[in-house]
Amino acid sequence: MGTVGTLIPQPSLQGRRPFVSRREVVNAILYVLRSGCPWRMLPHEFPKRQTVYYNFRWREREGVWDRILQTLRMRMRTRQGR
Rank of each mutant, 00 (worst) to 15 (best):
M1V: 12
T3A: 15
V4Y: 07
G5P: 07
G5S: 06
G5V: 04
T6H: 12
I8W: 11
P11W: 10
P11S: 14
Q14L: 15
G15Y: 01
P18N: 10
V20P: 03
V20A: 00
R23E: 11
E24V: 01
V25C: 08
V25A: 00
V26N: 06
A28Q: 08
I29P: 07
L30R: 15
L30V: 08
Y31L: 00
V32A: 02
V32P: 00
L33M: 01
L33K: 04
R34Y: 01
R34P: 03
S35G: 05
G36M: 08
C37H: 02
R40A: 03
R40F: 03
R40T: 04
M41A: 10
L42T: 03
L42I: 04
L42E: 03
H44V: 13
H44I: 13
E45G: 06
F46W: 00
P47C: 05
K48W: 01
R49H: 08
R49V: 08
Q50H: 12
T51N: 03
T51W: 04
Y53G: 01
N55W: 03
N55M: 02
N55H: 01
F56E: 03
W58G: 13
W58E: 14
R59C: 08
R61H: 05
R61S: 04
E62Y: 09
E62T: 09
E62R: 02
V64Y: 06
V64M: 09
W65P: 07
W65C: 10
Q70S: 15
T71Q: 13
L72V: 10
R73F: 14
R75Q: 10
M76R: 14
T78A: 09
T78E: 10
T78G: 12
Q80Y: 03
G81D: 05
